[in-house]
């Protein structure tokens, strides 16, 4: 078992970690999340797929409250999401987030990007944070780039740094919001490889993606969303071989042809 696959807390598998209950959200008149109920168990890897505009990114962002919700509740590890302030910041520290556009801090080196959270939020000594950061950067294969700035790295390298940055916080759950959509095709694999090894290590993951390959190999469950609602939910094998709804069939038909 590599360090990357090691989990900060011994997972008590099977117990619900993230629970969304009757979540609704509107952007003006647009009903972007429609009565969402999901329960994600510790150690589970859930892939959310669906056509663009289906609300899957909004769902992902709502889980660490980068988007607010209008109705319903979201609970993490048994506690409802705090509204504001320190409690919310503490919650976010426990939820790792990887963005489509990487969002590495442009003015900080790769190493500083990874150590900022541990030092400022977790209050770890600098030396300890740096040692841990270098270890994580080695694991994702960008250890030699530690002293560079984000703009000097390729997209794939940046996204792997972003994963290391999230992992440095020792999160309970990792959210991936289309992590490979902004990447050139030749870089997608290096990022997916890291994600697969994370999944195998038992990390609880919620992944919004179009990468069906990843869903097949790594997911425990696939959630298919369309027009803000969950249309279908199944194991990857069942979902890909035997989709139930017309919309899922239609979507898979378009995706898998190419």
């Amino acid at each position: 078992m590599t360090a990357l696959e090691k989990q900060p807390e011994a997972p008590a598998a099977g117990e619900p970690l993230v629970v969304l209950d009757g979540v609704n959200k509107w952007f003006g008149k647009l009903h972007v999340l429609q009565d969402i109920n999901i329960s994600i168990k510790r150690g589970e890897v859930v892939v959310v797929i669906g056509p663009s505009g289906s609300g899957k990114s909004t769902l992902c962002r709502a889980i660490n409250r980068l988007e607010t919700i209008d109705q319903g509740s979201i609970a993490l590890d048994g506690d409802p999401l705090p509204q504001e302030g320190k409690a919310l910041a503490a919650l976010r520290a426990d939820v790792g987030m990887v963005f489509q556009s990487f969002n590495l801090f442009a003015h900080k080196t790769i190493l500083e990007n990874v150590t900022l959270g541990p030092i400022k939020v977790r209050k770890k000594p600098k030396a300890e944070a740096e040692a841990k950061a270098r270890e994580l950067l080695d694991r994702v294969g960008v250890g030699v780039q530690a002293e560079k700035y984000p703009a000097q790295l390729s997209g794939g390298q940046q996204q792997r740094v972003a994963i290391a940055r999230a992992l440095a916080m020792e999160p309970k759950v990792m959210l991936f919001d289309e992590p490979t959509s902004a990447l050139d095709p030749e870089m997608i694999k290096e990022v997916l490889d890291v994600m697969v090894s994370l999944a195998k290590g038992g990390m609880t993951m919620i992944v919004v993606t179009h990468e069906m390959g990843f869903a097949r190999t790594a997911a425990d469950r696939v959630i298919f969303m369309s027009d803000g609602a969950i249309v279908e939910e199944n194991t990857p094998h069942e979902f890909f071989t035997n989709p139930q709804s017309a919309r899922a069939k239609d979507f898979l038909g378009k995706i898998l042809k190419h």
Binding site: L66, A89, G96, F99, S101, V121, A166, M169
Partner: peptide, 27 residues
Amino acid sequence: VPLGQAEAARAIGLSFGGVMSQVVLPQ
């Protein structure tokens, strides 16, 4: 400063003050 910078800073658990002083204002 792109919005994503502040979001990423919030996502690692920085408070508003931390987001401003560590990420947004320096840029």
